[in-house]
C-alpha cells in the first residue's frame, strides 16, 4: 500500500510537469502583447514593459521561462496577477467557492442519481425504470448551458424559488440551484450507472445464494446486490469531483459565481497569463490527487483489488 502510494506520487511528477508546461506554452502563445492594458488606456512606458518582461522572464526561451516559473510555484509562489494581487490569495478564495459548488453537485448526484438508479434497477422494465431511462437521456442530451439558463429563468426569475444570481458571499442557498445545474449531467450518468450495475448484480450468483440463505428480499437486494453495485458508482462520483471543478466554468458564467472557472476564463480574455497558469496548475494538481484518493478508495471498496 505505502509502496503503491509512493509509486503513484512519483508518476505524478512528470504528469504535473507536462501538463503545466502545455498550459504555460499555450497561455504565453496567446496572441497580443502581454503588457497591453496594464497601464489603462495609454501605452505602457518603456521602463514598465522592460521591468515586466524581466520579472516574468519573457525574454528567455520558453523552457527556461517555464522552469523559472515552476521554481517559484514549488516554493508556493504563484506570482501576482495584473492587479498586483497574489494569485495564491485569489485562488484560495475562488477554489473555496468552486469547491463548495462541486461538493454540493456531488451531494445532488448521490441523493438524486443513486436513488433514481436504485428505483429503476429494482423495477426493471416497469414504469419507473422507463421514466428514469427517458428522463436521464433527455438530461444527457440537453447542453448544460440550456439547462442552466432555463432553470435560472423558471425557478429563479419566474417562480422566485431560488436566487437568480450568486453574490460574492456565495451562500449555500444561493449555490443550490447552480449545484443542481452543474450536477445534472452527472446525476443522469450516476442514475444509469447505478441501474446497470444493480440489474447486473441482481442476477449474480451470490444474490441467489443470499436468497437461498433465507435472507429477506430486502437484505439480499439492499445489502448484497447494492454493496457490489455501488463500487463503480462511488468511483465515478469520486473522479467526477475533479472533473466538476474544471467543468464548472459554464455554470459559474450563467449564475455569475466568483469561482475558478470564471477566474480562468477572464484571465484568458485579458491575457493574464500568470493567473491562468496558476489556476490551471492548481486544478490539475487537485485533480490528480483526487484520482489517487479514489483509486485507493476503490481498493477499500473492492477487496479483490490489491494495491501491493
Amino acid at each position: 500500500m505505502g509502496k503503491y502510494i509512493v509509486r503513484r506520487l512519483l508518476q505524478m511528477i512528470p504528469v504535473i510537469i507536462g501538463t503545466t508546461f502545455i498550459i504555460y506554452a499555450m497561455v504565453f502563445a496567446l496572441p497580443g502583447d502581454p503588457t497591453a492594458g496594464k497601464c489603462g488606456e495609454r501605452q505602457c512606458p518603456e521602463s514598465f514593459v522592460a521591468e515586466y518582461r524581466e520579472k516574468y522572464n519573457l525574454d528567455d526561451p520558453l523552457p527556461i521561462q517555464y522552469a523559472k516559473y515552476m521554481g517559484q510555484v514549488v516554493q508556493g509562489d504563484f506570482g501576482t496577477n495584473q492587479y498586483g494581487v497574489e494569485v495564491r490569495e485569489d485562488l484560495a478564495k475562488r477554489f473555496a467557492v468552486t469547491g463548495r459548488l462541486a461538493l454540493m453537485a456531488i451531494a445532488v448526484e448521490i441523493v438524486i442519481g443513486i436513488s433514481a438508479g436504485i428505483l429503476a434497477g429494482i423495477r426493471k422494465g416497469r414504469f419507473v425504470d422507463n421514466l428514469v431511462l427517458v428522463s436521464t437521456l433527455v438530461v444527457i442530451s440537453i447542453p448544460i448551458f440550456v439547462i442552466g439558463a432555463v432553470l435560472q429563468y423558471f425557478l429563479g426569475v419566474r417562480l422566485g424559488l431560488f436566487p437568480v444570481t450568486v453574490s460574492s458571499e456565495a451562500t449555500t442557498y444561493e449555490l443550490l440551484l447552480p449545484a443542481i445545474v452543474l450536477g445534472s449531467l452527472s446525476v443522469a450518468y450516476v442514475a444509469r450507472l447505478t441501474r446497470t450495475n444493480l440489474v447486473e448484480n441482481l442476477r449474480a450468483d451470490y444474490v441467489r445464494t443470499a436468497i437461498s440463505k433465507g435472507l429477506s428480499k430486502r437484505r439480499a437486494v439492499g445489502l448484497h446486490a447494492l454493496r457490489n453495485s455501488m463500487i463503480p458508482v462511488i468511483t465515478f462520483i469520486g473522479f467526477d469531483f475533479g472533473a466538476l471543478l474544471g467543468g464548472a466554468i459554464v455554470t459559474e458564467g450563467i449564475f455569475n459565481i466568483q469561482g475558478v472557472g470564471g477566474y480562468i476564463y477572464r484571465g484568458i480574455q485579458v491575457r493574464d497569463g500568470v493567473a491562468v497558469v496558476g489556476a490551471v496548475t492548481a486544478l490539475v494538481i487537485i485533480y490528480l490527487f483526487v484520482n489517487l484518493i479514489v483509486d485507493l478508495l476503490y481498493g477499500v471498496l473492492d477487496p479483490r483489488i490489491s494495491h501491493d
Binding site: Y206, T209, I231
Partner: peptide
C-alpha cells in the same frame, strides 16, 4: 417459506467463487 431456507432446506452451488459475495 423464506424461513425454511437455511434452517430447514439449504443449498450449495457449483461455482463457489461466484456464489459467495466477493465483498464480504
Amino acid at each position: 417459506r423464506r424461513h425454511t431456507r437455511g434452517p430447514e432446506i439449504s443449498m450449495i452451488f457449483q461455482d463457489a467463487l461466484s456464489a459467495l459475495n466477493p465483498v464480504f
